[in-house]
């Protein structure tokens, strides 16, 4: 994989932390190759139920806490951030048309050559699926010569039987510590999860347990004219 071939990578996900779990290593590799990366983050995860472990956030303070965590993660990953201002859990009720037009304007203005988003239907959370579908639609609306490549993330339990295995798999071992730093930026969301990873793993420390789980980042390189969404 020659990361420097791309001109601008645009990541389109709905929640603070989606970028860190699924894609932080890949983002880091693009940044190390000198490629600008912009994150279009749909919401502030206002309705998340993780409040820290032990909890330190509440429903009303969570948005500002997660906003700062998102900014910190983007600083760790050295990528540009655009917060789109939608509300957690409501993306599927917004107009697909409006979302797609808005995304398309960003992609054209930024000169995106690669879009990384969720694979609609195979990304579990309704916001993930809706955000991915609007991103697919945005790319489809672009003229052929301007269209960026699309890499989609999927993690539903039925993904392999329906869409096979990811055809882009990136080993992020050499940038794993950056990824772990980005994940840990989302303190309200991940403390309990990292503890659980460790308790379910044979590894004897948190870093190794996380490495087992997050070493490979998989994407489906999608031909936008050939997929249903």
């Amino acid at each position: 994989m020659n990361f420097s071939e791309h001109k601008h990578v645009v990541v389109i996900y709905p929640h603070p932390d989606d970028e860190s779990f699924g894609t932080a290593g890949t983002i880091t590799k693009f940044r190390e190759a000198g490629v600008p990366v912009t994150y279009l983050c749909g919401t502030l995860g206002e309705m998340g139920r993780n409040m820290g472990n032990p909890f330190f956030a509440n429903r009303e303070t969570l948005p500002q806490i997660r906003k700062q965590e998102l900014i910190d993660a983007c600083n760790v990953l050295d990528m540009n951030l655009e917060m789109l201002g939608y509300r957690d859990k409501t993306i599927e009720f917004e107009s697909r048309d409006d979302l797609a037009e808005r995304f398309k304007n960003y992609l054209e203005d930024l000169g995106a050559t690669l879009v990384i988003t969720f694979y609609p239907g195979y990304a579990v959370h309704p916001d993930h699926n809706a955000m991915g579908a609007a991103a697919f639609e945005a790319v489809k609306r672009m003229s052929l010569e301007k269209r960026p490549e699309v890499w989609a993330t999927a993690f539903s339990n039925d993904r392999i039987e329906n869409i096979g295995k990811p055809n882009v798999v990136i080993d992020i071992l050499d940038v794993f510590d950056t990824k772990l730093d980005a994940i840990k930026s989302h303190r309200s969301q991940v403390e309990g999860m990292l503890n659980q990873l460790l308790s379910h793993s044979e590894a004897d420390n948190e870093r190794d347990a996380a490495l087992e789980r997050f070493r490979y980042e998989g994407f489906y390189d999608v031909n936008i004219d050939e997929v249903d969404y």
Binding site: N50, N53, F55, N58, R59, E60
Partner: peptide
């Protein structure tokens, strides 16, 4: 801000119910 916040959390600190 003068909000009365009430919530129920599970043993991992995750919110299960809220009334404000």
């Amino acid at each position: 801000q003068g909000h009365l916040l009430l919530a129920g959390h599970d043993n991992q600190g995750r919110l299960m119910v809220a009334l404000e």
